[in-house]
């Protein structure tokens, strides 16, 4: 069943375009006391340039772990991981990370928060008006000089996305970025993210707990097993873009995908 579901990209295309390539990638957390946690089973994953990949899986299955490995925040304990053909040895300028719950610095204004990536890291960044352009693109211009506590949750997360885009990275990694938002705001943010992806030509890896969000945004949905995490399905989403929230619900592919993913997750002992 798993095999039948997997969309196998043609080998040659993958080698040429894979911006993220994991082979036998695994992670075991070694604890000083208590048992070691085997978080990620050996994973093979190719993500091509410009793809939008959604990842769903049971809680604690290693999704954040996978993201942290790709972000260069933690070292893997097995296998290889390369971005654009270069082995990951630490955080890269080509990767922007959008954190859960925005993670803005409360003592900086919105503009200062978005500008943060450009004033650290020991490099001069010549970006022209990008900071203001990003702020304008996400509709935050009126709030550029405000502090995070003066913003709603959705606005904070938009600022968080702007910050991740400040260095114009090729890859955007997002770990449940909209998990803390209400359903309505979340839908708006999904539309906005689709727009950002379509206009900026980024490769995006989005971790989410929401099946509908995964399908709505993803060109592929990756389903992971319970811990230790493995990829149990890799499903292409062939719904034309730009997708709208109303249209997608009625789309036959959406319904069958949604059923498939739900069944896979249920088999892992988790219901969304």
């Amino acid at each position: 069943m798993t095999l039948a579901l997997r969309a196998v990209p043609s080998a040659s295309a993958a080698t040429q375009n894979a911006v993220i390539r994991a082979q036998g990638l695994s992670k075991t957390y070694t604890a000083k006391s208590g048992p070691h946690v085997h978080a990620l089973d050996p994973i093979d994953l190719d993500i091509n340039d410009g793809e939008f990949v959604s990842v769903v899986g049971p809680s604690g299955c290693g999704k954040s772990t996978l993201l942290r490995l790709i972000a260069g925040l933690d070292p893997q304990t097995g296998g290889t991981l390369a971005l654009g053909g270069r082995a990951v040895e630490g955080p890269s300028n080509e990767v922007g990370v959008v954190f859960q719950a925005a993670n803005l610095l409360p003592w900086l204004t919105v503009r200062e928060n978005v500008r943060l990536p450009l004033r650290v890291g020991g490099r001069e960044w010549k970006v022209g008006n990008r900071v203001d352009d990003l702020i304008a693109m996400t509709g935050l211009s009126d709030f550029a000089e405000r502090y995070p506590y003066e913003l709603s949750g959705g606005m904070q997360q938009r600022a968080g996305i702007c910050r991740a885009l400040a260095r114009d990275p090729k890859i955007l990694l997002m770990d449940e970025p909209f998990g803390a938002l209400d359903a309505l705001t979340r839908e708006r943010m999904n539309l906005e993210l689709q727009r950002i992806w379509q206009t900026n030509a980024k490769t995006i890896l989005l971790i989410t707990h929401s099946i509908s969000e995964a399908i709505f945004l993803g060109s592929r949905v990756i389903v992971m097993s319970a811990r230790p995490g493995r990829i149990i399905a890799d499903l292409p989403v062939d719904i034309p873009r730009p997708r709208s929230l109303d249209a997608i619900l009625a789309h036959p592919s959406y319904q069958s995908l949604s059923r498939q993913i739900r069944a896979l997750l249920n088999a892992q002992g988790e219901v969304e």
Binding site: P91, N93, V95, N103, G121
Partner: peptide, 16 residues
Amino acid sequence: PEKIDLMRSLSASRFE
């Protein structure tokens, strides 16, 4: 730790 992760993801120096 998320704030530290943020700075690490930006390759910020210890002093930054």
